[in-house]
């Protein structure tokens, strides 16, 4: 494994944390994510995934958020 590898938020495993490195989304999604605390450099934790390829449960700071995999795949993260 690379010491710092870039991947999708949706490919993290439950319990893993990473730093957000890039958010590649259209305006409406980008602003929604930003308002919920998704910004470059922020630490994000993948808490759990729902069964049947369902949404992800992530934690940023004091906020717990659920989002679908399609939206999560727009968020690039860096694991250290």
């Amino acid at each position: 494994m690379n010491p710092a590898s870039t991947q999708n938020l949706s490919s993290l495993k439950p319990g893993e944390t990473a730093l957000i490195s890039n958010i590649d989304a259209d305006n409406s999604l980008f602003h929604r994510l930003a308002a919920l605390g998704f910004r470059n450099g922020k630490r994000v934790e993948l808490v759990r995934c729902a069964s049947f390829n369902g949404p992800l449960h992530v934690r940023i700071g004091s906020t717990d958020i659920i989002l679908r995999r399609t939206e999560a795949s727009r968020i690039q993260v860096q694991t250290s």
Binding site: L29, R32, L33, H57, D64, I65, I66, L67, R68, E71
Partner: peptide, 11 residues
């Protein structure tokens, strides 16, 4: 549906 599915999970 035009809005992304992103919801907060409150405590």
């Amino acid at each position: 549906n035009s809005e992304p599915f992103i919801l907060e999970l409150p405590p």
